[in-house]
Design a binder for these strands. Sequence first.
DNA 1: ATGAAAGCGCTAACAA
DNA 2: TTGTTAGCGCTTTCAT
Lengths: 341, 341
Amino acid sequence: MTQSYKMVTARDVAELADVSVSTVGRALADDPRISAKTISRVKEVASRLGYVGNLPARQMRGAKSNLIGLMLPDIRNYFYATIAEALSDCCSANGYQLALSIANDPETEARHVTELISARAAGIVIVPTAQPKRETRDLLNNFPHVQLLRRVDTYNSAWFGINDEESLCEGTKHLLNLGHRRIAYVGGSLELSTGNARRAGFRRAFAESGIEPDEAIEIFGPPSSAQFGANAVTELLNRPNPPTALITGTIRVTQAILEILHQMKISVPEDLSVVGFGDAPEFKWWGSGLTTLRMPIEDLATTCGLWFLHHIASERPTNQQHSSVATATLVVRGSTAPLSH
Amino acid sequence: MTQSYKMVTARDVAELADVSVSTVGRALADDPRISAKTISRVKEVASRLGYVGNLPARQMRGAKSNLIGLMLPDIRNYFYATIAEALSDCCSANGYQLALSIANDPETEARHVTELISARAAGIVIVPTAQPKRETRDLLNNFPHVQLLRRVDTYNSAWFGINDEESLCEGTKHLLNLGHRRIAYVGGSLELSTGNARRAGFRRAFAESGIEPDEAIEIFGPPSSAQFGANAVTELLNRPNPPTALITGTIRVTQAILEILHQMKISVPEDLSVVGFGDAPEFKWWGSGLTTLRMPIEDLATTCGLWFLHHIASERPTNQQHSSVATATLVVRGSTAPLSH
DNA sequence: ATGAAAGCGCTAACAA
DNA sequence: TTGTTAGCGCTTTCAT
């Protein structure tokens, strides 16, 4: 059985209601010039036929799209899932629709950006990849968009993020204050604005505490790879002189680390103090609770969404210098303890 | 500064390249009738101007949309995040683009379905709400779509899900075999196909084991509410005669329960054996490990996506009786133990 | 090898 | 109060 899904057009409605196409359009828009009974007749026919207006056609007539592109590196990451939900709610409340693109590399990113622009989306909310293609930059710079979390400074757009440097600095100081010196930082690639800032925070903590970072260890890797985190920790703990404390720089690494430490049966905080980046709900009950840097990620996404949608709706340009920074909170739980000599 | 984002049209390219609009179209499509040098000149101008074809206009000429709607009740749920990612990959690999809609109630669902149809999406993958509106049903039944996980039988579409009844039955039998009799089942609403089937499985386990379910306890609630799960458990454990074992019927309830049991400092499995529905990564290291019903959710989503995209691309109707059922596996960890008298 | 013109479904300006 | 017409940006005849 080959049923084809033929869409009902305004013309179909017009013929059945015995009026012109424009009357159909006006009736469905409740145009006051159309008589009440014509309106009701047209509406009746339309609903009987299951007529749904053709948005592409409307867009050609200048109607604005209701599509907001959201480009994320990873949706299983709790961070990004939270963002997706917050933005979805935001869009939904304002009559927009979220188009989700998952892109982890610059090529996929470029393809998706092109597609969204081709679809004439209303705008794009993007967590950029580390080294976007020039093509992507040129396209985005001429299209309404806003950057979330990561920031690429060749984009002329607004940015909503967290105070990465300050956060890592605070987390590291917590460990320093507990007496730790051989502290390992396992974070995301330095090619990312976030990776860079977080590393800077790690270093600043030593500097501001007046402590030589000669025992500090820094390891970087792809931010969305669980494997990288696992490998890094294994390697660290197998060193002749393993670190006494560990702080992570991405959520994915945090999750990987929790799993591997559990597998390796490492005693936390006895053998190793751990500060985790981000705050997925399960961190509360990992071992005796994971000390974390909690980010107000939902607020951030909502703020970003509201700002962006408002600017789009009022046709304000989004290529401003606007930037908004949320601050992380250190949540101390059982995974960090004073260094025992 | 009010910069507007004016889109470049084929006409702009045509004028600058000093050819007609149709030549531009043909050149960009590598039409063999156009001379090599014209092609390269047009392409050069197009890329210099940042021309991106207008999809809405193309759609009016019969081009098929590349938009696949995905309707989920909740994206922070690991289950659904996994589905979103799997489908996104699937779409991406086949030139489609995912439009994510989060709808938890029939009204929002109806709105989003209408919007997707209005945008003339290529098709819709839906996890339906419990009681969809008649309007939604009429629209969907005349539009390419497929149901995932939950099944509404007034939709004439294919369905990809898991063997809910069998899964719960297996999990419950595990508890029965360990000697438990006062077993509580906390699951999703009976209005959902899944909630119904899972409850049936719970009951069947008693029947097939020849055990009277006179001590069995059943509690139902909204599947996406963490609060419901927490309340249910609190109430259960405060009873004069609390259950000795607990099995959950939704992921969200499982997560809520893990948190509340941890908070209440309940000894698992000494005071309570627990079987969790679903298998988020963190379940491995909850206490001494959570015994779970593991679902091959990623496979399921991928299978569904491939089937659906293939049918859409080949313009085959998707309103078939096709259904595909994946099976859950019981993963025994530390949270279940023999009943101690 | 290229251009002119029609038409996709819709809305809005102009007629009646 | 309603109909007629033009045109949005594109592809595709049909013409040259």
